[in-house]
Design a binder for these strands. Structure first.
Lengths: 205, 205
DNA sequence: CGTTACGTTGACTACGATCAAGCCGTGTGG
DNA sequence: CCACACGGCTTGATCGTAGTCAACGTAACG
């Protein structure tokens, strides 16, 4: 069950602690009626969808500053699960409409940038032929997005489900990247980007 | 150069002929400042993007009723090219903001449904392993979207660039589908869906 | 009528999925 | 505290499939 905490209507003075979701918890479920958007304040969230055949797909990873939960036909497009401990702010849809009213055309699309951008990125990654290039492009993208050399907490299984690869292939690709010296892995779930330039170069075959 | 015709501000009485783009013409360019959205009235449009390495990617096909041209950071996300002759309506962004003002939360996301849905579909297709399944899912999706048994005018090269396959593989997959009797191809650029059920079934391996 | 782009077919190859086995780290119960 | 089990990671061997290269056929257009 997702955490149901939301920012209540009118209590501006003392900002209570931001709502929180522990590792593995679900923020919202695919298909549920969307009442609010979630703005991630800290931590990592993964967007999950299950195919008719029962395969798990990851549609995106989301980070601090991202706004997720945009509905299609009133329902959430994917299930949002906390990869790490996550703090977030919930924004009621009605409240959002007010914002747009005052913000005008420019603000109109701000709220959907995250999901539009995430989907776009996902397609671009999947278009790359070659497991190694896909992995390099993925890690390179994370490196830029997170603005730092260290990527932590994302399981290889999740990368596999995101990039439409098998866990074995992900593992082998990471090994190649280690052997090439573009990354280091002090622990299994931690990737240090050593040579960002070479990493980016390897994204384009 | 794209057709620059737009619906002018206040002339409600006699509806002039809808703006028109001939086969191959460009409606808008990736990266251009987005001033208006395009609502397709008839025909087929493809969304195109070129990678840094010069490869052509097709990000989506759009049909009558679809609204395209949603900007990210003020710029169009892809180039829109007319696959067939196309008629469309241009909606100024300012006008759109007015609409949202009067329409409230529900209308807020209506304008982005097309692109959000298209990106989602694209990811789902690309996630399928197996060229035949990908092709079947693609054709099956077109069949449902177009609400008819006939799919015309989409080149195999375009399908290849959309599904991240080679033209050769697309051709061979279509041949298999012909041999299985799920589709017929009276001409090279026309596909008749003969057995929609079997087609859908083949989408899931 | 020639040119060009697209489609078709075949032979070969490379890459990633699959199957199988073992390893490691974490968490739980005796 | 250790034993054990579980999930995730790692490595190897094999196989199938889609990419590649090459050649030819066919439709569309000026």
């Amino acid at each position: 069950m997702p955490a149901q905490t939301i920012i209540m209507s009118a209590s501006p003075a003392p900002v209570t602690a931001a709502p929180h979701a522990a590792t593995g918890e679900t923020l919202f479920w695919e298909g549920d009626a969307a009442e609010r958007l979630y703005r991630i304040e800290s931590g990592i969230v993964r967007g999950v969808r299950y195919t008719e055949e029962g395969e798990r797909n990851i549609v995106g990873f989301y980070f601090a500053g991202d706004m997720i939960g945009v509905p299609v036909a009133g329902a959430y497009r994917f299930t949002a699960e906390a990869v790490t401990d996550v703090t977030y702010t919930a924004v009621l849809l009605d409240r959002l409409a007010d914002d747009v009213r005052s913000g005008g055309a420019a603000r109109l699309f701000e709220t959907v940038q995250t999901e539009l951008g995430a989907d776009e990125l996902h397609s671009q990654l999947l278009c790359r032929h070659g497991a190694l290039q896909r992995m390099c492009a993925f890690i390179s993208g994370l490196y830029r997005r997170l603005g730092g050399a260290t990527i932590e907490a994302i399981a290889q299984v999740d990368m596999a489900d995101y990039l439409a690869l098998t866990p074995e292939t992900v593992c082998r690709s990471l090994k190649k990247m280690r052997d090439s010296g573009v990354i280091a892995m002090p622990r299994h779930n931690r990737i240090d980007v050593v040579d960002p330039g070479a990493l980016a170069a390897m994204s384009f075959q």
